[in-house]
Design a protein around this nucleic acid. Structure first.
Length: 782
RNA sequence: GGGCGGUUAGCUCAGCUGGGAGAGCAACUGGUUUACACCCAGUAGGUCGGCGGUUCGAUCCCGUCACCGCCCACCA
């Protein structure tokens, strides 16, 4: 303390009892950067901290520097110090710490700069004696000099000038200890040692340099972001610009509402140079060109300056990027492109740059661009935020970590050695190479197969659900490669059977039920894909296509056409044209997701006037409910027969008879119509209509009719009995559940009518199904 | 410390405005019928993280706990 002043330092516990009391002539503080003490402007304590109340406003001495010029600094109060942390007293070095800077600003404490841009202790300016005297005057209340004057004060004593910060740190600690001014503790052997806490602290390192960051004061250009943010917040609030999914708006608002002034100058040699010029007197002229700057200077000064020097700094890359939506279109010139394409439509980007890029484009766009009426105009009406691709552990892919999967490896394939070489080459930290090499060999022992660009693209689309991230799974890429192969093979099969899109094909004139059905299914698919695309639900669109192509078109339509292609006549010709038409539509719908393959297939399957990507987007064609119902019935019957055959362990090669009973006229007609498909797909040798279901057969109930496979001598009927019993149990469960629901008065009273009606019809269906299965069961066990 | 998100089949993930859960891969059974074994047919597998609440009814809405992850700040 100044002039040997003392105070009573009292430590109390939670209940207010004194646990420690000592007459002190010092304040204990802790620091990890002792060299910054040279620039301290004050010691701060919390206003409610009673321990220091007696000495607030007094001066204390900094225990560094030559004894004859030792500086005094005031003890001040501020909300920043935490009384429960350490001694509760904090040294304030406004020029070299972010928090201290705020405290110093609030309390009028000078910001003494101690280092140069190389992080060495300053060598410039007047002698320490002179500078210390100036600082003393300030501490004693002489008033704060202007910023430049404060910055000129070099409080580094001659002994430390020019030293690297770490050297200076060591030297200062030595000097303090030598003088006995550190806080000492007594060790087990009874020696007094300077108290050094072994404590982990978070230390910011430069991203690229890997060097400890040293905060210091410099002159920089700033943008008043708060003013610019206001309209950008409003545009999203009132829906002029929308985020998809909407939840990301929260992130946007969170940033924008807490925005700080934006430092836009960078000390790099690439980038847009800042358009500011200085005259010899240090006046600043901001202009588009040097000539304009001279003209401006002449006007303002009254005479031409001897010379102007341009600020060597460049703009923050995000500042330049903020201008992207219009600078790319020729701005500031009013080009036709700018008029046509600004405002743009949809910005597609990742959530990690909502603040860096999206927010800044919004601010710049609203500031610089106007619509026809002169109102500010947003750069885009929609911001689509997609998921981020991560590695298998969910980590963001990063070049410096080395967990990157190169898309080209998935597309072209690469062996394990090539992959390892790639991932260990060019790492920021070569010492990590062995670890990464080991990991890579473990994870991808064989490298990657070649999956192709379309497979990768489709995978990303179908996985880009509106979540947060995509853990790229190689197995799924392989799965969708298979999907491409499937479509390729389907096309080949179609060509072998004379399938070809006919320019005059008219979907609504199609006669054959199977064709009317596939066109109906196609229409539903078109609707679903289009709708989901418009809603940015690309995963749903892609999966609708996957299902339609594989499970509807290939699994059923092409199979159903086989008997027709093997025959002759009108149905065959119509089917060839219809299949060609559907394939064309598939190519078009799939084109955004698998552009290369679909374009290729399109060109291989006909003489085309233009590229697939130039054709128009499909719209729904035929929608025939009756045809859909008929073929769905067919699919149902075939599936159930197949299922029974598999469950009863009937040899695939065995051809069985099918005996139909209880059928109505419509079913009879359907069976007759689709006899060919039924026999082929269910592997039957004949279909008979019978009065009553035969004994000793496996029985299937579809709708009103019962379909029996006579199995006398083929299978064990205990199995059939067990199978039917299982089915009965399942139906009983459903019936019980629905009954419980419908017998609940509250449900009937409160649930919407449509729901109640739905449940009722479900129940009726199950009950009638159960009756028929029961009959079948009784018959087997008769 | 502040904010945000996640926890659904063995794995990777869907499930949009509450009405008994789906896909791909893997698994299992069986298949070389002239598109496709990167295939076909079939099967199995889930107290939707735990506990409360709202509701006639909860994977879905609310609260809470646990675990995981991301962003921001950071302790003199």
């Amino acid at each position: 303390m100044a002039d040997g002043q003392t105070y009573t330092f009292v430590q109390k516990d939670e209940d207010g009892n004194v646990v420690f009391e000592e007459e002190r002539d010092f304040i204990s503080i802790a620091t990890t950067r002792p060299e910054t003490m040279l620039g301290d402007g004050a010691v701060a304590v919390h206003p409610d901290d009673e321990r220091y109340a007696p000495i607030v406003g007094k001066l204390c001495e900094i225990p560094v520097g030559p004894k004859e010029h030792r500086r005094l600094i005031p003890i001040i109060t501020d909300e920043y110090p935490d009384p429960d942390f350490g001694s509760g007293a904090v040294k304030i070095t406004g020029a070299h710490d972010f928090n201290d800077y705020q405290v110093a600003k609030r309390n009028g404490i000078p910001l003494y700069r101690l280092m140069d841009v190389k992080a060495c202790m300053r060598e410039d300016g007047a002698s320490y004696a002179e500078c210390a005297a100036q600082a003393m005057a300030v501490a004693k209340g002489a008033g704060l000099p202007d910023e430049a004057a404060v910055d000129a004060i070099n409080l580094v004593p001659e002994a430390y000038r020019g030293l690297d910060r770490y050297e200076a740190r060591m030297k200062i600690v030595e000097d303090i200890n030598a003088e006995g001014l550190a806080v000492f503790i007594r060790d087990e052997d009874g020696n007094d040692l300077p108290f050094v806490e072994n404590k982990k602290i978070m230390q910011p390192f430069g991203d690229r340099s890997k060097v400890v960051i040293e905060p210091m004061l410099t002159d920089q250009w700033f943008v008043d972001a708060k003013t610019l943010a206001e309209p950008a917040i409003q545009s999203v609030r009132n829906g002029r610009t929308e985020f998809v999914p909407k939840t990301w708006e929260n992130t946007y608002f969170h940033w924008m509402e807490n925005i700080e002034p934006w430092c836009i100058s960078r000390q790099l040699w690439w980038g847009h140079q800042i358009p500011a010029w200085y005259d010899p007197e240090g006046n600043i002229y901001v202009a588009k060109t040097e000539a304009e700057a001279y003209a401006l200077a002449e006007t303002e000064r009254g005479s031409a300056p001897s010379e102007l020097v341009r600020d060597p700094d460049v703009l923050d890359t995000w500042f330049s990027s903020a201008l992207w939506p219009f600078s790319t279109l020729g701005w500031p010139d009013q080009t036709p492109e700018l008029k046509r394409y600004y405002q743009t439509d949809v910005l597609v980007t990742g959530f990690d740059i909502i603040f860096f890029w999206v927010a800044r484009m919004m601010m710049a766009g609203l500031h610089f661009m106007k619509d026809e009426d002169g109102n500010p105009l947003e750069p885009f009406h929609t911001v689509y935020i997609h998921a981020l691709v991560r590695d298998e552990d969910g980590k963001k892919m990063s070049k410096s970590i080395g967990n990157v999967i190169d898309p080209l490896d998935l597309i072209q394939g690469i062996d394990a050695d090539g992959l390892v070489a790639k991932r260990t080459y060019g790492l920021a930290r070569p010492q990590d190479a062995p670890r990464i090499e080991k990991e890579t060999r473990k994870r991808y022992p064989d490298g990657f197969e070649a999956y192709g660009a379309d497979a990768l693209r489709f995978t990303l689309a179908i996985m880009a659900a509106q979540g947060r991230d995509v853990k790229l799974s190689v197995e799924r890429v392989a799965g969708y490669r298979n999907f491409g192969t499937k479509l390729w093979n389907a096309t080949r099969f179609a060509q072998m059977n004379g399938v070809k899109a006919h320019p005059d094909f008219q979907p609504d004139l199609v006669n054959h039920t199977i064709n009317r059905w596939i066109l109906t299914e196609l229409s539903a698919c078109i609707r679903e894909v289009t709708d989901n695309t418009q809603r940015y639900r690309f995963n749903d669109a892609a999966s609708a296509l996957y299902k339609f192509v594989w499970n509807t078109f290939c699994d059923w339509y092409l199979e159903l056409l086989k008997p027709i292609f093997n025959g002759d006549g009108a149905a065959k010709l119509e089917s060839q044209q219809c299949a060609g038409f559907v394939l064309d539509q598939i190519y078009a719908l799939l084109h955004p997701y698998m552009p290369f393959m679909t374009e290729e297939l399109f060109s291989l399957t006909g003489e085309r006037e233009k590229l697939l990507c130039h054709t128009s987007w499909p719209s729904p064609v035929v929608e025939d409910e009756a045809a859909a119902a008929e073929i769905n019935w067919l699919i149902d019957v075939v599936s159930q027969i197949r299922s029974v055959r598999a469950e009863m362990n009937i040899k695939p090669s065995a051809q069985l008879e099918l005996e139909v009973s209880g059928e109505d006229a419509r079913t009879r007609k359907r069976v007759e119509t689709h006899q060919g498909a039924l026999t082929t797909m269910a592997r039957l040798k004949a279909i008979l209509f019978v009065e009553a279901a035969p004994k000793n057969s496996a029985q299937i109930v579809v709708g009103e009719a019962t379909y029996c496979l006579p199995l006398e001598g083929v299978v064990d009927f205990a199995e059939e009995s067990a199978r039917l019993e299982k089915e009965l149990k399942k139906l009983d469960g459903e019936i019980k559940r629905l009954n419980g629901k419908l017998n609940n008065e509250k449900f009937v009273a409160n649930a919407p009518e449509t729901i109640v009606a739905e449940e009722r019809s479900k129940l009726a269906e199950y009950v009638s199904q159960r009756e028929k299965v029961q009959i079948a069961f009784d018959r087997v066990n008769a």
